[in-house]
């Protein structure tokens, strides 16, 4: 018997493969390294955000603030660089801890005041967006030699594809997060919290420490995604990255993570983002299909995976 928990992962992977094969069969140039590396490049910031979202959702929570945190991080970074003439690395060194602190505060409020993550991170979403617009409502272009250097930095691959710095950052953090989730005590605690917080507490897991760390980590990754997003757009914009939290949540669910928590894989989320990306690419290649089909197809995919999860879980012997 194949382990049940891998079934959604396999389905996502197969769908991704099927989608890719359909695209390749239909369009010339679809099956190229370039298309694949572009998937990485275009989705790097979403991938990084979705890593954090996976953690939060596995723990049984949700983080609606990530889109706004991306915008805030981008705006703050670009303001520090262009108006205060900081070196980008200095700016990153300030922005990243600040972002992490933001998440830690949300985690603290959720834990201490026993408020629902949904509503607390919703407030966080408004707060981060509000701070971003307060700093600047305009899009701030970044013109710094460091950014030019970063743009040129990439690993060339055959077939005119190349992995840029953003993709590399994602790959690095994917490895780190996957290792943390599957090989560290903290990772086990995250799963434990999502499985049953009460049992986890009775078994000696510190709920406070775990909850706060989870939201801190999610905000850290969103902040990092915001920085990566500035590599992509060469600017910071307070009204950018709207709705990224929904994309991230969708990717997590499509990747086979249980929205009620306790089960899921970081790898699944990555596949989920790629699946959404391939659908997008397919629609772009096709040219006649309109962009709204992406939303509808993603909605249908979500429905499919949620019902699938229901069916898979309905079969397990449940008690207490």
């Amino acid at each position: 018997m194949m382990a049940q928990r891998f079934i959604p992962l396999w389905i996502t992977a197969s769908l991704l493969l099927v989608m890719f094969l359909i695209g390749s069969a239909q369009f010339e140039g679809f099956a190229s390294i370039r298309v694949v590396t572009n998937l990485f490049r275009d989705n790097a910031f979403l991938l990084i955000t979705a890593l954090g979202m996976t953690l939060v959702i596995i723990s049984g929570g949700i983080d609606l603030s990530v889109g706004s945190v991306i915008a805030l991080s981008g705006v703050l970074t670009s303001v520090l660089i262009t108006e205060y003439h900081w070196h980008p690395l200095q700016a990153f060194a300030l922005v990243l801890p600040l972002g992490t602190l933001f998440g830690a505060m949300m985690g603290t409020i959720i834990h201490v005041y026993k408020l629902q993550p949904f509503i607390v991170t919703l407030a966080g979403m408004f707060l981060a967006r509000g701070m971003a617009t307060t700093i600047s409502e305009e899009s701030i272009a970044i013109d710094h030699p460091f950014y030019d250097a970063i743009a040129d930095l990439s690993i060339a691959l055959p077939g005119s594809g190349s992995l840029d710095i953003s993709s590399l950052i994602f790959i690095l953090f994917f490895i780190i997060i996957a290792t943390v989730m599957h090989y560290s005590r903290f990772g086990t605690n995250v799963y434990a919290l999502g499985g049953n917080a009460q049992s986890a507490e009775l078994m000696g897991v510190s709920i406070a420490k775990t909850t706060i760390s989870i939201y801190a980590l999610s905000s850290f990754l969103a902040t990092l995604a915001g920085i990566v997003f500035t590599f992509y757009t060469f600017s910071g914009y307070a009204l950018g990255a709207v709705g990224v939290e929904l994309d991230a949540i969708a990717a997590v669910v499509i990747g086979g993570t249980l929205l009620t928590g306790g089960r899921g894989f970081v790898l699944g989320t990555v596949l989920g983002v790629f699946l959404m990306g391939v659908i997008q690419t397919y629609i772009t290649f096709d040219g006649t299909l309109s962009s709204w089909w992406t939303k509808i197809v993603i909605g249908l995919l979500l429905f499919f995976f949620i019902v699938l999860q229901k069916l898979l879980n309905g079969r397990k012997p449940s008690h207490g």
């Binding site: 949700i62 929904l246 969708a250 929205l259 309109s290 939303k295 909605g299 949620i306």
Partner: peptide, 25 residues
Amino acid sequence: GIQPIVATLLLMVAGRGVAQLINQG
């Protein structure tokens, strides 16, 4: 028996797509 947040998230994501489809963008 789907959690309300998730169940309504479906329509939140797909709904705008449907509206755009009706309007043909």
